[in-house]
């Protein structure tokens, strides 16, 4: 158990989550980042996620979570009787029989059903152990949320949230259409919806699963960057999004339209944090003429 430091002899602030402490533990009790390990920053300014050590413990409320494994890490949560966590039901790996499961109803079930998002969040109450993992190699990303703080997470990247974290969702507003008339198709490169997690009064913990490696950078006000839409892992709510399309000149000819050489980008505007995952999903694009879009910018080479 990690108690509040009394009379700290040394002030240590976790560079990943900002948790202050003495830095006497091997890992940050709030996010699991290794203590006293220098940040790995690329020349372009991306900070590599500080890997969570095997068996590191993350504290939340009266409970803690232990991260186990290297390739497909497991979040093993030891829930106290007062605490709860919620998750999409397919993420459950194992649980002790005494851990109680129930459904957490969500608003807008009809829209979620059509968008392919989970209809119900499952809530687990302590005491007991319950563990979660995803079905692809990657990293566990711990996002401790302080009161008043929020994070927007791309759909299906969320693993588990603690009871102190509220859950909501919103429309991404990133789409484009191909074809006309009855042949018209609407595409959502980022998905129709994004998850929004926020803490109102008590601090909470959000665990995400990054496919491959996770990199983070903080955009300054007005600063922009283009990323693959499916590479987005999470962002601060202050970061705005816009669709950007790039394609070779003469693309609209019948010859080029048989190729899907179009680049679909997500333009992110600062200020705020942006996190990407290195193993992004392939985006379906039929390569046909774009007949409508959500205020996208289009650039031809």
């Amino acid at each position: 158990m990690i108690g509040a430091p009394t009379g700290p002899k040394r002030h240590y602030k976790c560079p990943w989550c900002g948790q202050a402490g003495e830095g006497t533990e091997l890992t940050c009790p709030a996010c699991g980042a290794s203590v006293d390990v220098r940040e790995v920053v690329t020349d372009s300014g991306w900070v590599e996620l500080p890997g969570i050590k095997d068996m590191a413990r993350l504290q939340f409320g009266r409970s803690y979570c232990q991260i186990e494994g290297k390739y497909v890490p497991v979040a093993d949560v030891n829930l106290s009787a007062e605490d709860s966590v919620y998750f999409a039901h397919h993420l459950l790996l194992w649980k002790e029989p005494q851990v109680d499961l129930s459904a957490m109803s969500l608003k807008g079930a009809w829209k979620r059903l059509f968008a392919g998002m989970p209809l119900v969040m499952t809530q687990a109450r302590g005491p007991g152990h319950i563990a979660f993992s995803r079905d692809e190699p990657g990293e566990m990303v711990a996002v401790p949320l302080h009161p008043g703080q929020a994070a927007d997470v791309r759909e299906h990247c969320f693993l588990v949230g603690t009871g102190q974290v509220s859950y909501d969702w919103f429309q991404t507003g990133i789409w484009f259409q191909t074809g006309t008339g009855n042949d018209r198709e609407t595409h959502y490169p980022l998905g129709m919806f994004m998850d929004r997690f926020f803490c109102q009064q008590a601090p909470g913990l959000l665990l995400l699963h990054s496919a491959g490696n996770c990199f983070v950078r903080t955009l300054g006000p007005g600063q922009t960057i283009l990323i693959k839409p499916t590479a987005l892992l999470f962002k601060d709510p202050t970061v705005q999004m816009q669709l950007h399309i790039e394609q070779p000149g003469g693309y609209s000819s019948s010859f080029w339209s048989s190729w899907t050489m179009r680049y679909l980008w997500l333009r992110l505007f600062g200020p705020g944090r942006v996190a990407v995952q290195s193993a992004f999903k392939h985006m379906e694009d039929n390569g046909r003429y774009v007949s409508g879009h959500s205020g996208a910018t289009i650039h031809q080479w």
């Binding site: 039901h89 459950l92 499961l101 459904a103 109803s105 079930a109 009809w110 059903l113 119900v120």
Partner: peptide, 16 residues
């Protein structure tokens, strides 16, 4: 089977 009800939409079932 663990049933997780979502009211009108029937919910889902977890087979464990």
């Amino acid at each position: 089977t663990q049933k997780l009800s979502a009211g009108f939409f029937g919910g889902t079932g977890m087979n464990l």
